[in-house]
Computed example of a mutant assay.
Amino acid sequence: MLPTCQRPVHSRGATPPAPAGAVRRLAYGPESLRQFGELRLPPGAGPFPVVVALHGGCWLATYDLQTMTPVCEALTRAGYATWNLEYRRLGQRGGGWPGTFQDVARGFDFLPELARRYPILPRRVLVLGHSAGGQLALWLAARAGLPPSSPLYTPAPLVPAGVVALAGIPDLADYAVAPGGCNEAVAELLGGLPAAVPERYAQASPAQRLPLRVPYCLVQGTADRIVPPEQAQAFGRLARQAGDAVRVVEVPGADHFDLIAPGSPAWPAVMQAVGALLPLPGHHP
């Protein structure tokens, strides 16, 4: 059983420290070319709170974790450890239903194991996802109530302290039937449209798994043409009705990719959302 303490366990066999800012590529599953993450640690002894990053790209193999590299570098400079997760995607063996979700869950639940070797706090973890990764980030918080019969079920899953979804896709059923290029990938991800496989949408779509019971924030650009602001607005209303602690932050004029571009006018809103849900030591939201 993995340890539940927050401080890492240091032993004679512990991994020696690497220079601050170094990237450690570590496998969390047997397919090390697809089931891995990149760990970055800020300067200092730690232990550090962790931001788990989930990239988007319509759940397609065309896009990978490098899209979140600038985000992780900026967060690490700010004082957070970051765990940038890769997972199997559409177009790869094992990607889609249920492998994509199983990988994200397995990579997230690997944090206590990482804490045995590195100075991170696996109980002070925020999940930050962009676009399709925003859906997966919210789903990580929603999976705790899955029935044991589900292929996505994990006994005693790690629960994040909060979630930040950047241009996320919280309502898969609504998004799947709307026009757009990325929208068509939802049916491929889940193996059909909502009418064909409603049980899969019920297990995978955050909008159908409310309340999530963790605090979360949806950051959305008003000029986004890939994920329209209505996704965040409608989900925010449903979440509040369900009793969740949710904020919807709209960034005027920001497009889909401004939210993952440190230095863009939208970036302060992202940092504020992260800091409010996962304050650094000595900082207050």
Rank of each mutant, 00 (worst) to 15 (best):
Pro252Met: 07
Tyr118Met: 01
Arg200Gln: 03
Gly191Val: 00
Ala239Cys: 05
Pro211Met: 03
Thr15Phe: 14
Gly29Glu: 11
Pro252Trp: 08
Tyr153Ala: 09
Leu2Val: 15
Leu193Thr: 07
Arg143Gly: 00
Gln135Lys: 00
Ala165Val: 04
Ser11Ile: 10
Gly168Ser: 03
Val186Lys: 07
Thr62Glu: 14
Ser11Arg: 15
Ala185Gly: 04
Gln6Leu: 12
Cys182Glu: 10
Ala115Gln: 06
Ala14Glu: 09
Leu26Gln: 14
Arg89Tyr: 06
Gly145Met: 02
Pro98Val: 11
Pro215Glu: 03
Leu259Ile: 04
Thr69Leu: 13
Leu39Thr: 09
Leu172Asp: 03
Arg34Pro: 08
Leu166Tyr: 05
His130Gln: 01
Pro265Phe: 13
Phe235Gln: 08
Leu212Arg: 09
Gln92Lys: 12
Asn183Asp: 04
Val251Pro: 05
Cys182Asp: 07
Ala234Glu: 11
Ala74Val: 06
Ala165Pro: 04
Ser131Lys: 03
Arg24Ile: 00
Val249Phe: 04
Arg7Lys: 12
Arg106Thr: 14
Pro229Asp: 08
Gln35Thr: 08
Arg143Ser: 00
Ser11Gln: 13
Gly37Cys: 02
Pro19Gly: 06
Leu136Phe: 09
Val127Trp: 08
Gly129Leu: 05
Asp171Met: 02
Pro211Asn: 01
Glu73Gln: 15
Pro179Gly: 12
Arg88Tyr: 12
Gly134Met: 06
Thr100Arg: 11
Arg200Asn: 02
Asp64Thr: 10
Gln220Arg: 08
Leu114Phe: 04
Gly79Asp: 13
Glu250Met: 10
His130Ile: 03
Ala14Asn: 13
Tyr63Phe: 15
Leu166Met: 05
Ala273Lys: 02
Arg89Gly: 04
Gly46Ile: 12
Ala204Phe: 07
Ala61His: 12
Ala61Met: 09
Leu39His: 08
Pro112Tyr: 02
Gly94Pro: 14
Tyr63Met: 13
Ala261Arg: 15
Ser32Thr: 15
Arg237Gln: 14
Thr100Leu: 09
Leu259Met: 07
Gly180Val: 09
Leu111Cys: 09
Tyr153Ser: 00
Gly145Asp: 09
Gly29His: 10
Leu138Ser: 01
Pro42Cys: 07
Ala81Ile: 11
Gly181Pro: 08
Phe108Met: 06
Gly134Leu: 01
Leu146Met: 03
Pro3Gln: 15
Arg240Gly: 07
Val270Lys: 12
Leu278Ile: 11
Ser264Trp: 13
Pro148Asp: 00
Leu193Ile: 00
Thr82Lys: 10
Tyr118Gly: 03
Gly162Asp: 00
Leu280His: 12
Gly57Glu: 01
Ala156Thr: 12
Leu158Met: 00
